[in-house]
């Protein structure tokens, strides 16, 4: 017990000193004159910008636009991903035809499709939502198709014996059994949807956090830009954590239906 406690305190010591070291490194690099003046603003100014932004209605306007784009794109992309992933996983032959294509496309930089999406949906929220949806479609589809193939065949045979319809099988067997791959897909998808929405905002937009960050960059208001980046990363981290905790809720079914735990 004492040994375990000592180990934990040792780890905490490492973490706290690393955090302090990074903080000191940032401040020292900013003050050293190695970089242009103001490029690495003191954390004090970044903190002040954060506080100022939190009371600024314009900032919250940008924030809500970005949140809407991410959630809409994430929702659309995940839903299509679940449907396509289920279809590819359930039908072996269609999986063999299309999965390699999806796998290769997943390894391409999605942002290069932005010019096409801009032509199709304009510079408004449409192009941002569509890039976010396109980005998160791939991890969800691949994760789910692999998950379906890894399922315990016993459950499928039980479904056949009970003569379940396709919808019943999806609802009562596939979805509960596939909570882990769906969870993986959702987590990866949320991060990548955030990237999709923000990169397209940064490239071309008149609203959203990406736009606000680039405006601050153009004014050389680096503390504000850094504060917005912190908000963006906090948003991505929070989303990831929320998905993780929500998906763990569904209870005993999921555990019993997953192959690797039975």
């Amino acid at each position: 017990m004492a040994v375990a406690n000592e180990m934990i305190s040792r780890v905490t010591l490492y973490r706290v000193s690393a955090a302090l070291f990074l903080l000191a490194l940032w401040e020292a690099a900013g003050a050293s004159g190695l970089f242009f003046k103001g490029v690495l603003p003191s954390t004090w100014f970044i903190g002040k910008s954060l506080i100022r932004l939190s009371g600024d209605p314009v900032f919250w306007g940008h924030f809500s636009v970005t949140l809407f784009e991410i959630l809409a794109g994430f929702g659309i992309g995940s839903l299509v991903g679940v449907i396509v992933g289920l279809a590819l996983g359930m039908n072996r032959y269609s999986g063999q035809i299309f999965e390699p294509v999806i796998e290769y496309l997943a390894a391409t930089p999605k942002v290069v499709f932005l010019p096409i999406l801009l032509i199709l949906f304009g510079i408004g929220v449409g192009s941002k939502i569509s890039l976010a949806a396109l980005s998160c479609f791939f991890p969800m589809t691949l994760s789910l198709a692999a998950g379906v193939r890894g399922m315990n065949p016993m459950f499928l045979r039980v479904g056949q014996t009970l003569n379940l319809s396709l919808m019943q099988r999806v609802r009562m067997i596939y979805l509960p059994a596939l909570v882990p791959p769906i969870s993986t897909g959702l987590r990866l998808g949320f991060g990548i949807a955030t990237v999709g929405a923000l990169l397209s905002e940064i490239k071309l937009s008149n609203k959203g956090l990406g736009h606000a960050a680039m405006q601050a960059y153009a004014r050389f208001d680096i503390p504000t830009m850094m504060a917005i980046l912190i908000v963006i990363f906090a948003l991505a981290g929070l989303g990831n954590m929320l998905i993780g905790s929500i998906i763990r809720l569904p209870g005993p079914n999921t555990r019993r239906l997953t192959k690797d735990r039975t």
Binding site: R15, R187, L198, A213, M226, F233, G237
Partner: peptide
């Protein structure tokens, strides 16, 4: 023990959004 989790969290973060910095 102290930092592997940190790097795992960094790996999951949308790092490309750091590019303005």
């Amino acid at each position: 023990r102290a930092f592997t989790d940190w790097f795992a969290a960094i790996a999951a973060a949308p790092l490309v959004l750091l590019f303005p910095l």
